[in-house]
């Protein structure tokens, strides 16, 4: 138990230390619950593995039947999946670079000293942050006939740029006032002070938040599926799904799921490492 329940010495704070009978009871409860959880999961796996009859009277093999998994040995399949992964990473990388650049620009505009710059940029940022990314992609796709790739990259870049911009602005405003004063007093212009003194510190402080946002960005490239960009989900679930038939749909789903979870766990682990290192 972490958090409220334990004090630094490891003794429970919220209630008195359990005696031998209470400890035995909690041990028994632990074993029983473990068995129930494992049994439940086992039951789901077993049911999914059973042959099933459709309403049309056709019998389908169970999900773990080898005939549903033989495609995984086909190298062509993996080549296509690799292409999908590559397209996902390509869009994510381009959008991440764009989002970082826009984030800096937005933060500068948002914290400008003239209200004529600050207030309109605040309105634009609220607008960008308040609407779905998917709608932004559709907007770019239809209003500028940009093609699916650009729609995905620009949509993700604008949306995440707005979020990173807000994070950077919060970082700047949390800096001690003396930082800016020191910059100005040694003769730097306000703009140079902001870029050379304030931004690097704000960036460093907000790095974990920014990396976490980039994980979200990677996940959101999957919206390309809906606007027609051949990223991972469109490649596996749509193109391969249609080519191989419904028999393999679950197999393809599991493969796609594993690829996404692994990619995101690696990025999240990187974010945690960055947060700790600071």
């Amino acid at each position: 138990m972490d958090g409220v329940a334990m004090s630094a010495s490891g003794a429970p704070v919220l209630f008195d230390a359990p005696g031998p009978r209470a400890r035995r009871r909690s041990r028994i409860a632990s074993v029983v619950v473990s068995l129930v959880v494992l049994g439940g999961l086992g039951l789901v796996v077993y049911i999914l593995g059973q042959p099933r009859e459709t309403s049309g009277g056709v019998t389908l093999t169970g999900l773990w039947h080898p005939s549903r998994w033989d495609v995984v040995t086909n190298p062509d399949l993996w080549e296509l999946i690799g292409q999908g992964v590559l397209n996902t990473l390509k869009a994510a990388a381009a959008a991440a670079v764009l989002a970082l650049i826009l984030g800096v620009v937005f933060a500068l505009l948002r914290s400008a000293r003239t209200p004529w710059v600050r207030i309109p940029s605040m309105v634009v940022l609220e607008f960008l942050r308040g609407m779905p990314v998917l709608l932004m992609m559709l907007f770019i796709l239809l209003a500028f006939s940009s093609g699916a790739y650009l729609a995905v990259v620009l949509g993700l870049g604008l949306y995440n740029g707005a979020i990173i911009g807000e994070a950077l602005r919060a970082g700047i405003s949390s800096l001690p006032k003396g930082q800016r004063e020191a910059g100005l007093s040694i003769g730097l212009t306000p703009f140079v002070t902001r870029m050379v003194i304030e931004f690097p510190q704000a960036f460093k402080q907000m790095l974990p938040i920014i990396v976490a946002q980039l994980v979200v960005l990677l996940k959101d490239t999957s919206l390309g599926f809906i606007v027609g960009y051949p990223e991972l989900i469109r490649t596996t679930m749509n193109n391969l799904g249609n080519a191989l038939g419904n028999k393999y749909l679950f197999t393809l789903f599991v493969i796609t799921l594993v690829i996404y979870v692994v990619m995101n766990l690696i990025l999240s682990a990187f974010a945690r490492w960055l947060a700790k290192r600071r």
Partner: peptide
């Protein structure tokens, strides 16, 4: 948390 919403809704 690490699965895209698109994939969940596709499922």
């Amino acid at each position: 948390r690490n699965t895209p919403l698109t994939l969940i809704l596709f499922f």
